[in-house]
Each structure stands twice: as structure tokens, then as C-alpha cells.
Amino acid sequence: MEGTQVTRIPGGAIPAVDEVDLTPVRTYWQLVRQRFVRHRLAVIAFFLMAILVTAAIAIPLLSGDAWKETSLERINQPASLTAPLGYDSLGINTFARLMKGLQTSLFIGFAAVLVIVFIGVTVGSTAGYFGGWVDNALMRVVDIVLSIPTFFLILMLVAFWGTGNVWVIIIAIGLTGWTTAARLVRAEFLSLREADFVQAAKALGAGDRRVVMRHMIPSAMAPVVVAATLGIADSVVVEAALSFLGFGITPPEASLGNMLTKAQDYFYRNPLLAWYPGITLVLVVLAASFLGDGLRDALDPRQRVETN
């Protein structure tokens, strides 16, 4: 051993750990949470979204059919304890109907985003991983979908498959909205494919599926999660627009869009009827947007968090 010691580079003799590191173990998600919490607007947005979702689930459950029960006696009654926003021109409890509408809109928003993420990740990862002509073909499909005016395509799909059906609206939004997610995932995959840790996994003998599922998709998901969160806002707005035009959810079913349509008729007599769904819609969109911004920062593993 003495003999080899002589031939060592001076200074290199320290054998083991080069630094003593006493920071507590923190997983990736703990770090994400720490970074997210620093983003105050995002935290507010998170709680706002939580309140909206809870209300949209709980209130229609608790109030039963109040959202569609008409009554001649209650027409245009003012606010009370059981009806905080009063009654509309058909004698329907406005608050109950608003929450039911919010439920429909949020459901469509989240479900459409799931469709978008599923199609987008599948197409984008296939294109980015295999490259070459596969990539070329898939990206031309993306270009074609992008070149079609989205809203009119949705209108056409809904008109074709039948208006008023929640699932038709979800599929229509999903089929037209996946292009951004696909492009993001493809771009991530193109750079990840050359990343050293992906190459290392291949050198270890990991198969395509393991490399894609274990190494590439988790690393490519950050921008997709952000895009998806922002996509919730988009989908809710598209649904509202469809319903407003009469192609989406039609009465007696409730949605934020058809509540706006109806409020139009009483705009001068009772403008508040338009404000309620309008403000709710704005809150949903703002919450989703700020949540997306916060996640964008939090999901970037290169951002350091101070320890204290």
C-alpha cells in the first residue's frame, strides 16, 4: 500500500466523503412544496380553487334538486338564508343553480384537460422518442389540427354529435386542445433523449418502456402540468362560450355559460344575475392561471430552496 501511496497526486489522499452534509433528506415533492409555498399568489389561488371545487361538489349534494326547482311564489325573491343570492325569474334558487353550474363547468374543465394530457403526452412522447419520420408525420398532424379554427371545429363536432351532452363537449375540447401539450412533450423528449441520465439508463440495459416511463416522462411532465392547469381555465371558458351560444349545456341542466345566456334577458332589470356566473367564471380562470404559474416555478428542480 505504501508503494502506491507514493504515486498518488498530493492532496488526493483524503479517501472518502469530501463533505459532511447534515441537511435533512428531502424528496423531490417536498422541495416542490417548499418552492410552491414561496409563491404567495399561487397559494391563494390554490385555496381559492380548493374552495371552488369543494363548494361545487358539496353544495349540489346538500341542496338536492334546489338548482332546478321552479316556483311561482319565489319569482325574483330577494336573498335569504337558504338562498344567499335570491331567486331568479323562474323562482330557482340562484346560489344552488350557480354551484351546480360551477360543478358542470369544472367537471368539463378537468375532464377535458385529462383527455388533452393523455393524447398530448402519447403523441408528443412518441414523436420525440422515435424522431425521424415518426416525428415528422405526427408533427404535421399537429400542424393540421392547429390550422383549423378550434372553436368552429368544436361547434361542428358538438352540432354533429348532439348538443347538451357533457361527454361530447369534453371529447370535442380534448380532440382540439392536445396540440400544445404534444408540442411541449415532444420538445422535452428531444432534449431528454440526449440527456446523460437517459443515456446512462440505456447503457445499463434498460428497455425503451422503462426509459420512457421511468426517466423521460417524469422529467417531461413539469411543463405539461403547467399547461394542463392553464388548460383548465381555457376549457371552462370554451364550455361557457358553447353553452352561451346554445351548443353546450342546455337548460334545465345548469352551467356557467347557460346561466349567462339567461341573465342576458334580465340584464337591465337584474344585472346581478349576470355578475354571479361571470365573477365565478373569472375566479375559476384566475385560480387556474395563478396555480399554473406557481407550479411552473415549483416543478423546476433546478430552482434551489434555501434551507432554514
Partner: peptide, 16 residues
Amino acid sequence: DLQVVFQDPYASLNPR
């Protein structure tokens, strides 16, 4: 029988 050590230790380990 055939392994590799990469140049950049920051890029060669999966952060997740």
C-alpha cells in the same frame, strides 16, 4: 461488461 461514467455529474443522474 460494458459501462460508462459521464462527464457532467449534474446531468448524468436523474434528479427524480
